[in-house]
């Protein structure tokens, strides 16, 4: 279970951001297929196989969440919504869900603010090589194995007294969300005409006015998409969360994880399906926003 959940997190990292840029395709392998290897028949077959491999195990959970029996038998032979009833009436689940949404919201706002400021700042940096290095540094959470990050965060937060606090979760998750914002905002900045900022400045706008009135509105689609990716990165985060949780402060994915060990009924399947639905919806919206941008600026 642990492997599956983290697998999904990294799946989001490599899959959805390129998908957002190639426009409108959400399935990981498919996005890669259309993006780089033109429409070679073999590439298409390979893409479909990889897509099935990635998607099918995930989708097995969905039918099980609707089973009529208190077992994980697949395929189910009777159907019901009782596990969803369970999920939304059990305060252990609902409070974990509320907490996860709250942490995801806060960390997304933080990651978006920091990530956007950094991306915009880095494009202004005259020394290109240093800017590239700094940008790479912001992407570290994507490259470094999650377990290494988790241990690092655990150690640092331990000495700062942040373990088991909402602040700790928000900070940790925000740092994981920053790369998504940086990637997405840097992508829109690529097609942003810096001449517009000069024009605004020559017309009397100060730095903040230029950012508020010109830069931000024009890169907003990238900012929003980044914010949504950062939201998802927090909402389905498990590994780091396991290290910094306390018995009194658990997120929804942690609850799922522990429920697999402790509980024996398919409520956990309903919970997983919920995570899947929320994540997919948010990413669909993010992708939609990215394609809106291209249409409005007519590029």
């Amino acid at each position: 279970m642990k492997g599956r959940v983290t697998g999904e997190v990294t799946g989001t990292v490599t899959g959805t951001v390129p998908a957002a840029q190639t426009g409108g395709v959400t399935a990981t392998a498919k996005a890669k297929g259309t993006g780089t290897v033109a429409r070679h028949p073999f590439a298409v077959v390979a893409a479909v196989v990889v897509a099935l491999l990635l998607v099918v195990p995930t989708l097995v959970v969905v039918p099980i969440s609707f089973t009529g029996k208190a077992s994980f038998v697949f395929p189910p032979d009777s159907w019901s919504l009782r596990w969803y009833g369970n999920l939304f009436s059990d305060s252990r689940w609902t409070s974990a869900l509320r907490r996860s949404l709250w942490i995801a919201l806060l960390s997304s706002v933080l990651a978006t603010t920091v990530g956007t400021a950094a991306s915009v700042g880095l494009t202004r940096w005259r020394r290109r090589r240093w800017a590239a290095a700094a940008r790479a540094l912001l992407l570290v959470p994507v490259f470094v194995p999650a377990i290494v990050l988790a241990i690092g965060i655990y150690t640092v937060f331990g000495s700062l007294g942040l373990l088991g606090t909402v602040t700790g979760f928000v900070l940790a998750h925000a740092s994981l969300g920053v790369p998504f914002v940086v990637i997405s905002v840097t992508a829109v900045l690529q097609s942003f005409d810096v001449q517009l900022e000069r024009a605004a400045e020559s017309l009397g706008a100060g730095r903040w006015a230029v950012f508020r009135q010109i830069t931000l509105p024009l890169i907003l689609p990238g900012v929003l998409a980044g914010a949504l990716f950062a939201f998802v990165a927090s909402f389905d985060e498990i590994l780091v969360s396991l290290f910094i949780k306390s018995p009194f402060l658990e997120t929804f994915p942690i609850r799922v994880y522990q429920s697999v060990d402790n509980d024996t009924d398919p409520t956990v399947a309903a919970a997983s399906t919920l995570v899947l639905v929320v994540t997919t919806l948010v990413i669909l919206v993010a992708v939609r926003i990215s394609t809106l941008r291209t249409r409005r600026l007519g590029t």
Partner: peptide, 16 residues
């Protein structure tokens, strides 16, 4: 921004 100089850019630089 304090020079009070109007500038017309080659590619117009209108705010889209």
């Amino acid at each position: 921004r304090r020079r009070n100089v109007g500038m017309v850019f080659q590619n117009y630089a209108l705010f889209p």
